[in-house]
């Protein structure tokens, strides 16, 4: 499904942030990426989506055999990749629902499908908003405009639910969420997840993994995955931190 091989990437001044990432994600899997601040976790999602602030020095990223690195950003998204950044961007003046409809229709156009009808779209968004227990205010507001941190994260998962991607890369989706919101968002992700899809979660805490059971847990440090394991690894990291890995 998603294959990342020896991915190295730099920022404009030449500083290399990713120093050879290898990751294989198969359908039905949930991968948790943990690691100290500044280790390259957020950069990884932006690089595979093609953020212009980063330059890929080396490596390959494929989604179902297609080379993502050669594709336009919108085509990467429409091929089935979704990323949710740590700090979702605010876009005042762009209505949230109109934006969602345009994004969905862009994907449908890419896949050669007709535009979604008004009634069908309304039914879809009503269903997904109910799933995430979102109130009506989300419909009329600008994209993430004036939202609290938690509201932004919930809105990100709404987009994920509408766009129905194959692989979702969720960067610290649990930050800014209170206990109830965390449960709602996690349940939403579990509901969207299916044996044909995969999720990559970046998190600092076990609490999200209590709701979304990871298949694998990886530790990213200094731009490389230095350790991988099962769900028990996250528990050990929560107890002991990261230093023991380097000592080992």
């Amino acid at each position: 499904m998603l294959s990342i091989k020896n991915l190295k990437a730099s920022i404009e001044d030449g500083t290399q942030i990713l120093k050879g990432i290898n990751l294989e994600v198969k359908p039905g899997e949930v991968h948790a990426i943990m690691g100290p601040n500044g280790s390259g976790k957020s950069t990884l999602s932006k690089v595979i989506m093609g953020h212009p602030a980063y330059h890929v020095d080396e490596g390959a990223v494929e989604l179902d055999g297609k080379n993502l690195l050669e594709m336009e950003i919108c085509d990467r998204a429409n091929s089935g990749l979704f990323i949710s950044t740590q700090y979702p961007t605010e876009i005042p003046g762009v209505n949230n629902v109109e934006f969602l409809k345009m994004a969905l229709n862009s994907k449908r156009a890419y896949l050669g499908q007709p535009e979604i009808g008004d009634d069908e779209f309304k039914k879809l968004i009503d269903e997904k908003m109910a799933l995430l227990e979102m109130d009506e205010r989300y419909r009329d507001r600008g994209v993430n405009d004036g939202y609290s941190g938690g509201e932004k994260k919930r809105n990100e998962i709404l987009q994920m639910a509408i766009l129905d991607p194959k692989v979702s890369f969720l960067d610290e989706t649990d930050s800014g969420l209170d206990i109830d919101a965390l449960r709602i968002v996690a349940n939403g992700i579990n509901h969207i997840m299916s044996p044909e899809k995969a999720v990559i979660l970046v998190t600092h805490y076990q609490r999200l993994l209590d709701y979304i059971k990871p298949t694998y847990v990886h530790v990213l440090r200094h731009g490389k995955i230095i350790l991988s394991g099962g769900p028990e690894l996250a528990l050990k990291l929560e107890e002991q931190g990261y230093d023991w890995i380097e000592e080992k």
Binding site: E72, C74, T89, S106
Partner: peptide
């Protein structure tokens, strides 16, 4: 630039 990236990363052509 961040707003542009956000929109295109949701599949909307540039």
């Amino acid at each position: 630039a961040d707003q542009m990236f956000y929109l295109v990363s949701r599949g909307i052509p540039a």
